[in-house]
Amino acid sequence: MTAVGPTGGTARAWAELLRLPALFTVPGDALAGAAATGAAPGRRTAWAVGASLCLYEAGMTLNDWADREEDAVARPHRPLPSGRIRPGAALAAAGALTAGGLAMAARARRPALAVALPLAATVWAYDLRLKHTAAGPAAMAAARGLDVLLGAAATGGPVRRALVPAAVLGLHTGAVTLVSRRETEGGSSTAPLAALGVTAAVTAAVVGRRGAHDGPVRAVPGAARATLAAGYAGTVAPPLAHAVLHPSPVLTQRAVGAGIRGMIALQGGLAARAGQPGTGLLTAALAPLAARLARTVSPT
């Protein structure tokens, strides 16, 4: 028997709407941001992670609500156009998740709420207005960068030290978003080729020399940082190369999925780069869980 949720949709439908495998890409934002300030993960970091998870899922839900008419043609199997979840229930969930995220950010620390507010505004602006404009990828990049700064702000440490990891994760997110714009029709090698260049630059940033704002100087085991950077590049680059050579919808979708999964290793690499290889490896341990769940629920 299929479990029925309180808003009338099945558990499976809500898992698809929320894209649960992609949820594992979220905690690493706050962890990387906290690591950049030199702080070890603590209770306030946990509140920041909770806020990030809520705001991320608010965006996922609002995305499908805003695209329900378009999905009725291109993706009729999605939860809203298929009728498995009511549009009103999805919109209500997006609002509740946003409120919950802001409440958790307030519990973390007042500066965290000051970052969460523009993050929530960016999420809603992207889904309702910017997604199909030229500003779409930049808005997604900004949202991911703000999510990293949220983790830094929750620690009470200097947020400026998290600007580099925020920019790196934002750059990767913008590239993946650009590729995702053609995932239903394919036909273009331009976006995946550009994303390949971004992947190379991001990998170099993780394994390269630390900058002046990357946190206090500590001995960082090079092996952990190099391993995580290699895991990121090995996950993201091959599917992008395939999409460049054969830009079909299937290969483009695989490249987008790989870009989402690879974010976990990237977050771990940035934490290791900031002097916390333990946090980096802990973050990377989420990747197998995301991959396992992605076999039954699509992350895109």
Results as ranks from 00 to 15, higher is better:
Asp71Ser: 12
Ala194Ile: 13
Val217Cys: 12
Gly208Cys: 08
Ala48Glu: 03
Pro192Thr: 02
Ala99Lys: 08
Pro165Trp: 07
Leu130Arg: 07
Thr173Ile: 07
Ala135Asn: 04
Leu18Ala: 15
Asn63Pro: 05
Ala72Leu: 11
Val256Ile: 11
Met1Ala: 14
Leu193Gly: 12
Gly278Ala: 15
Arg107Ala: 15
Thr37Gln: 03
Leu146Asn: 05
Ala265Gln: 10
Gly278Tyr: 10
Ala92Glu: 09
Arg218Ser: 14
Leu113Gly: 00
Ala141Pro: 05
Gly101Val: 01
Arg261Val: 12
Gly38Asp: 05
Ala274Trp: 01
Ala294Gly: 09
Ala284Trp: 04
Thr252Asn: 07
Leu149Phe: 06
Val159Cys: 03
Ser52Arg: 02
Pro247Ala: 07
Leu228Trp: 02
Thr7Lys: 10
Leu130Ala: 15
Gly234Met: 09
Val220Leu: 08
Ala121Gln: 12
Met140His: 02
Arg75Pro: 04
Leu31Val: 14
Leu23Gly: 15
Leu169Ser: 01
Arg254Ala: 15
Ala39Ile: 05
Ser248Gly: 10
Ala274Pro: 02
Ala233His: 13
Ala134Ile: 10
Arg109Trp: 01
Ala39His: 14
Ala229Tyr: 03
Ala99Arg: 09
Arg107Asp: 07
Asp71Phe: 09
Arg19Pro: 06
Ala223Asp: 13
Arg19Leu: 06
Arg84Glu: 15
Pro137Ser: 08
Thr37Trp: 02
Arg129Trp: 13
Gly28Ser: 11
Trp124Asp: 03
Pro87Asn: 07
Arg161Asp: 12
Arg84Ser: 14
Ser82His: 08
Pro277Phe: 04
Pro27Arg: 01
Val168His: 04
Gln276Lys: 08
Val236Lys: 02
Gly215Asn: 04
Ser188Glu: 14
Phe24Leu: 15
Gly215Arg: 02
Thr300Pro: 03
Leu293Arg: 13
Leu266Glu: 01
Ala141Val: 03
Ala99Ile: 11
Arg12Asn: 09
Leu18Phe: 10
Leu117Phe: 08
Asp67Met: 06
Gly9Cys: 00
Val73Pro: 05
Ala285Ile: 11
Leu240Asp: 04
Leu80Pro: 00
Gly100Met: 06
Val206Pro: 00
Val26Lys: 00
Pro238Val: 05
Leu62Glu: 10
Gly156Gln: 03
Ala162Glu: 06
Ala200Gly: 13
Leu289Arg: 13
Gln253Arg: 14
Pro192Tyr: 02
